[in-house]
């Protein structure tokens, strides 16, 4: 089976999850990569070290900013001349939009949120957790190329030390694809302590009720000797800085202890912390998905339990 992997990049680096998907595809068949951007020729060649036999590169000023629609045009052009069986994307905000728009453009099937791929004969089977990961669905495609979005953090990148043939290509753009423009582009924030190396993380979500709720989180984190983290919802709401965000569009962590306070446990958050060693959660909603992947779940009010917990831990230390 012949795979094309869309390899994303940011600030001069190939994105880790894309390289993980590249490694997975290499274990299943022939794998080629595509890199789109401006000034990315050299970067693209790097995909060879991670298992790509060939890398298609489109280097164009109109691909400078990470917007989805011009990339759909480029991929359509590339796919028209090449008989790929499947096109794989590591799920990100950018690639999810590209994959879905490409599906509509080509009338090609897209399966999303996959956590595994298996080749059975000449059939590709995707594995997709559904309904809060309570059931695992085997999904298939009835058209080619098969399009797939892989859940973030699913596959590890593997350096093979190989090298890839770099094949430049060009494409035209549709007018509507160029209508949206990016006036500010996100940059990695480096201020603040790193939560990725912390052994203990205490994270707060919307259930804290407001930004002032983070004071309790900080006090508990101090008592446990840990770092403070937050969910996307509260970061977007301005309660806590983005550098502390856990989840699909934040950091992926695996501390020894993860304490989730007032966090419902949406997939977006789960993928960022599910490999933590011990997970303890407090939430007033007994049906919150977070309880399904916690070791200890306490149904109750964070505002009552957390101050008591901090006090007990501090008393224990002294």
């Amino acid at each position: 089976m012949r795979f094309l992997v869309f390899v994303e990049h940011h600030e001069g680096k190939l994105q880790k999850d894309s390289l993980g998907v590249l490694a997975k595809a290499a274990s299943l068949g022939d794998v080629e990569a595509v890199v789109l951007g401006q000034g990315v020729q050299e970067l693209a060649a790097d995909a060879g070290r991670f298992g790509a036999q060939r890398v298609y590169v489109m280097d164009d000023v109109l691909l400078d900013r990470p917007l989805p629609q011009p990339r759909v045009d480029a991929l359509e052009t590339l796919l028209a001349d090449n008989g790929f069986d499947a096109v794989l994307f590591a799920a990100t905000v950018l690639s999810a939009d590209i994959a879905a728009a490409l599906a509509a453009r080509l009338g090609a099937g897209l399966n999303y949120d996959l956590t595994d791929l298996v080749v059975e004969g000449d059939t590709l089977v995707g594995k997709r957790p559904a309904l809060g990961d309570s059931v695992y669905v085997d999904v298939g495609w009835t058209s080619e190329p098969r399009l797939a979005l892989i859940r973030s953090g699913t596959f590890e990148a593997q350096e093979t030390g190989g090298s890839a043939e770099v094949v430049p290509f060009e494409s035209r753009f549709q007018d509507f694809s160029l209508a949206a423009t990016m006036v500010e582009q996100a940059h990695e924030e480096s201020e603040g302590p790193s939560i990725e190396d912390a052994d203990v993380i205490v994270a707060g979500g919307r259930g804290l009720g407001g930004p002032e709720g983070f004071q309790q989180v900080e006090e508990l984190a101090k008592a446990l000797g840990g770092a403070v983290a937050a969910t996307r919802a509260v970061v977007d709401a301005g309660w806590y800085p983005y550098s502390a965000q856990i989840g699909q569009t934040g950091k992926v962590v695996s501390p020894k202890l993860y304490v989730a306070l007032g966090i419902s446990g949406a997939i977006q958050h789960k993928v960022g912390m599910q490999s933590s060693n011990v997970i303890v959660s407090i939430n007033k909603d007994a049906n919150a998905p977070i309880f399904e992947f916690s070791d200890l779940g306490v149904v109750g009010d964070v505002h009552e339990i957390v101050p008591k917990l901090t006090e007990l831990l501090n008393a224990r230390k002294s």
């Binding site: 990470p66 949206a180 423009t181 990695e188 569009t249 934040g250």
Partner: peptide, 14 residues
């Protein structure tokens, strides 16, 4: 204004 894996982008469109 939208959040991505790297922080916040600002995008305009007609």
């Amino acid at each position: 204004k939208r959040q991505t894996e790297y922080g916040y982008d600002v995008i305009e469109a007609p």
